[in-house]
Each structure stands twice: as C-alpha cells, then as structure tokens.
Design a binder for these strands. Structure first.
Lengths: 348, 348
DNA sequence: ATGAAAGCGCTAACAC
DNA sequence: GTGTTAGCGCTTTCAT
C-alpha cells in the first residue's frame, strides 16, 4: 500500500496525494478531502524513508550522552524527545559510556542515517571524533566545549553563579573548613566547577586548603572513595561541596557508614539538582543546573542553525545560569561535632 | 557523493560496490579492496534511508517505556540499545508517560519509520492502541500482558518466586504485621505482585490484614502518601513490602520525617532492585527483577520472531525469575519499637 | 490547480 | 564474478 494506491482510489495523481498529505495550500479542498478520506479508510501511513530519501531531510537529530543510567541524563532525554516530537523530529539516542570507540561508532551510525543535527552532552569528550560530522556540515551543539566555529553552537554554563551562592551559604553558616570533591578533571565541566569553587572561596577571603580538595569521578562510588580520603586526612572538613549530586550521595552513604550525621556533623552540597536530590535523606542542598532548560537550549540551537541560510562563521553561544537550592543537608557549623571514631581506621 | 561516485573511481559497477559494502563473498577480493580503499579515501558512508527503502528493512526496533525518568528504565534502555547496535539495529525510543495520546502518536511514528519490531515495556498499557502495529504484522514483545497471538511474544515475570522469598524472610524475622503497598492496580504487573504477596502470606498461614494493604502509584510520592495512610490506621505494621523500589524510597522518606528508624523500628522491602536501591540509606533489601535480562529477552524475542518464517499462531512465551536480595533495610522485629508520636497527627 | 515523469541512493534480479 | 537495469515510495519540477 503506497501513495499510488491512494491516488488510484481517490482518482487523482500521486502528486496531488503528496500535496494533500503535506498540506500544500494550493490543492482543491474538495480533492484534498477525498484524498484524506481514502487515507483514513485504508490506514495509510507514509513511508518516512522514501520521503527522507527524496527530500534529503531525515528529520532526525542525534543526541549523544555519556550514560543514560546516570540520573542526570534521563530528564534531558525526556525533554529533548518531547520537543523533537513536537517539531516532527525523531531522536537518535546514544550513550557512549565515555568510550571513544562507542562515540566513533555512534557518529558513524548518525551520519549513515543522515541526522540533521547532533547535540553532544558528554561535557568535554574528544572533539576529534566529531570531525566527520563537521565535514558534512551537520549542525552541532556542545555544552562547555571548544572554540567557536561555523555551525557549532555552544551552551556555556554559568557555574560561578550557583557555586558562589553555595560557598557563601556555607560561609554564612560559619563553615571555614570547606572541602571540594571535584569530578574527573579531564572533563572541562569538572575543571570549570573546581575553578568556580576556588574563585568563590578566594573572593570572600577563605582559604581553600589543598588537602581538602580531592578528585572524584562524578559517581556515588567516587564520592565514597573521595570522602574516605578526606577522612584519612589531617584536617576534618565541616562542609563539603561536591561537583555533582551523585558524588554528594556517595558522601552521604559513607557518612552513614561512619556514623557521621548530616547536617549536624557535616554539611553537604551537591551540584546538578537531579530529581533524586530532593528525595535522599536528608534532602540535598544543591546547585541547580536545569536539565530541562539545557535540553531546550540544545534543541533550539540545532533548529536555529538549520534555519539559518548563511551560518555565522563563529557559531552561536547560549548561556545557562545555575543557582543554589536550599534543602536539608546544610546547617550552622557545630563547635563540637560528635564525630565518632572511624570504623575502618586509616592505614597505619 | 554516492555509490556511483565510488563505482566510477574504483572503475567497477555500482552493483559491485554494493556487493563489496555488503561483504558478499562472491566478489573478487582484488576488486573489493579497490572499492574499499576508494570508500575510505572519500569518507563515503552509505545512505541508510536508500538501503532501507529498497531492501524493505529499516533496521529499527521501537522501544516503548512509560517514563525514562523512572529509574527502572534507563538500564533497560541501555542494554537494549547496546544489543541493538551489536546487531546493526537502531532503536526508536519513546516515553509515553502513560498517556494514551502519546502512545498513539508514538505508534504512528514507528509505523511511518517502518520499525521491524516493537518492545512494549509499559507493563499493562492498553493493547488497543497497538492494533495498527499488529495489522501490519510487526513483531511485538510485551511484559506481563494479554493473550497469546501470532507474532506477539510475552515475557512472563515470575513474581511469586521473589515475593515468596521476601515474605518468608520477613516471617523468619518474626514479622506478622506485614503491610503491602501496591502499585496502581490497573497495571497487570501491579496486580500480579499483590496477588503474589497475598498468596505468599496465606501459604505460610499469615493473615494479610486488609487494613495493611494500600494502593500506591509506583512513585516516591505515592510511597509517602501510602505510608501516611498506614500510619493513620489502627494497626501499625512492623514490616512493609512495597510493589517497587520507588515506593520503598517514599516509605523511607516518610519514616525519616516521622522519626521512625529503619530497620530498627520498621523493616522495608522493595521490588525491582534498581541500581539506586543499594545506595539509599539504609541500603534497600529488595526483590530483584533484572532489567538487563528483561532487555535481553525482549530484544531476542523480537529478533527470533523476525527470523521465523512461519510465525507460531500463539506467539512465544519467555519467563524471567525474580529473587530476593538482602541488604540493610530488614531486621528482626523488635518487641518494643520506639515509635515516636507522629508530628502531624491523623485528622481527628 | 493538477498531472506526468524524473529522480533521491541504493539493492537485487537478470544477463553475460 | 561482474555489469545493466528496474524499481523501492515518495517529492518536485515542468507542462498543461
């Protein structure tokens, strides 16, 4: 069953059927109606591949993320998909697991499917792998990455705004010994958050003790390990700022095991504000970076670039603000925290 | 740049290029090599739409889930996608949000893209909406649903096995007053879990107090509300079995607010074993239903059905077992639980 | 306003 | 073993 069948039964040409389907205004309403009723009757659905082939437009956007199982991403995927569908686009989703091989394979598949644009949400992955896409002039949108370039948009996150609020919140709560657990520092976004922390501390005359700055992995496990290191150190922080919420959840887990109470013995702040943050116990104070807004920005960037006839040589920049959201995991520093001895002591 | 261009430069016909690309063994290795080197040189990527159009095979599977933001699903998506890619399939993902309109639109888009099969992971959504797919003889795989039918596979979850273990575990811990918070009962899967609970209780001569059985929504919020109702009731349970992990997390949240300690005052068991279950505080004892296995089963069901020449009239059945995994949220019942007065008393 | 017909890039007969 | 060619189902000139 194809367009010819419809044409025959509606006693018009295939061209008219096509026009009717695409709602070209010039078709005689009478005919259009006849066509539509045949379409309904037969349950005809146009073949997207054929349309794409002849029109040269796949109506597919690629969306590359690092891990769908990382709670940060599902909301992005959801919003991105929802908007895409509203615009009659399909999305081709891929989790790279931060593996360059996956990334390369994904890029290849996307090119083969002739995606019209790709949003890269890996926060700092090797741009090199995307050469093929650039070569083919596919619009791209990144977060936090690389130099401006034609048809490449960038969403810059204003980390400083939210992180400054977090640091000042902690300072107002009389915390001086503030630790920072970063993400993997090869990620631009992780490095940027760390710098924002350092800057915010200095700004208000607080010393960021290097011994209180440790690298994590943006995972719960990483948070557990990193907090362990902190506990092994000479100075015990009274507050910890984490580079993302998963890390903060790791800290909370470890604190639970060690009998350290949050927020009475230790204040904890996360970053991202994933949905779960409000449901952990205690609810996590965190710096929000709206995943929904990020998705919206990315989608619109792609669409805009696609509509532009002469792409600006430098691409376009977008900005996303961050801000602190207060919940239960922070409290005024206590002068005599009851920090029990560790169950598993540091190596002798 | 197309197959003709490659053909010209390699001084062969397009047919030979096509054969080389598809690794048809009959082509002269010499020629094949020449073709491949031209392909590499020019960075040629075949056009999937054209291939799909002529071959009649889209190499796309649909995957319908209820909510990607529900932590139960990301792992399914990840595994399903990984396997799909290994088999040179793309996946077309859609979250229906349990909204029939979305579902209908998604089905339509899938048909338009000519998916070769669809996995429906909504655990009991209206089958009616899928008529169009069945009409077009697209292989389908469901979880927990409907009557056997040609080209429709079913994955039956053996709820009883895991839930029986959970109930007996609780009983062994001397709990008698065991509450059950179900999922939305219009979902087959929720109803099935409830029945498994009832059966397991009866089996060992424990009375399932109707006042201790309340309906939830399979969400954290639902868990909070449901546990609230339980607290308002006359008999206070010493243990709660939840229809999924999110519900259990809601119970934990509510317990935290009410000053009820888990597991000392109350034992809690979840269902699903989402990844988060091991990281909540305390780590959640739960009945595991492997999301990875579910994804694998679903994918293979589709692939198998596709390869079958004469589909069995009744479709195929697969089974997935569940089993209890012990963690920190259950404990021997305490005779005198220190259950503090509620902060927000029940309505007078 | 409508129709005839030429492709979009590829695969698969069929011929050699 | 390789080439020629007829489509796959649709959109889009170009006539009319």
């Amino acid at each position: 069953m194809d367009i010819r069948e419809i044409a025959k039964r509606a006693r018009v040409s295939t061209a008219t059927v096509s026009r009717a389907i695409n709602r070209i205004p010039t078709v005689n309403p009478q005919l259009a109606k006849r066509v539509w009723s045949v379409i309904e009757e037969l349950g005809y659905y146009p073949n997207t591949q054929a349309r794409a082939l002849v029109s040269g437009r796949s109506r597919i956007f690629g969306l590359i993320i690092s891990e769908i199982t990382n709670p940060f991403f599902p909301e992005i995927v959801q919003v991105f998909e929802r908007i895409a569908v509203q615009h009659d686009y399909e999305i081709m989703l891929t989790s790279t697991g931060n593996d360059p091989t996956h990334m390369e394979a994904a890029v290849r598949r996307m090119i083969e499917r002739r995606v019209e644009g790709v949003a890269i949400m890996t926060f700092g992955m090797e741009e090199v792998l995307l050469e093929d896409l650039k070569l083919r002039k596919v619009p791209l949108v990144f977060v936090d990455v690389g130099p401006p370039r034609a048809r490449v948009s960038n969403i810059r996150i204003d980390y400083l705004h939210g992180i400054r609020q977090a640091v000042q919140h902690l300072a107002a709560l009389r915390h001086h010994k503030i630790a920072f657990i970063s993400g993997p520092l090869h990620l631009k976004s992780a490095e940027a958050r760390k710098q924002a922390f350092l800057g915010s501390m200095e700004e208000i005359g607080l010393e960021a003790d290097p011994a209180l700055i440790v690298e994590g992995t943006h995972t719960i496990e990483g948070g557990i390990v990193a907090f362990g290191k902190l506990l092994d150190g000479a100075t015990r922080p009274t507050a910890i700022l984490c580079s993302n919420d998963m890390t903060a959840m790791g800290v909370m887990r470890k604190a639970y095991e060690e009998g350290i109470r949050i927020p009475s013995d230790l204040s904890v702040i996360g970053f991202d504000d994933i949905r779960l943050a409000q449901f952990v116990l205690p609810a996590l104070t965190t710096v929000q970076m709206s995943q929904a807004d990020l998705a919206r920005l990315a989608f619109n960037a792609l669409l805009t670039e696609l509509q532009r006839e002469t792409p600006s040589a430098t691409g376009t920049e977008y900005t996303l603000k961050t801000h602190l959201v207060l919940r239960e995991s922070t409290r005024l520093v206590s002068d005599h925290p009851k920090t029990p001895a560790r169950k598993t002591p540091a190596r002798p």
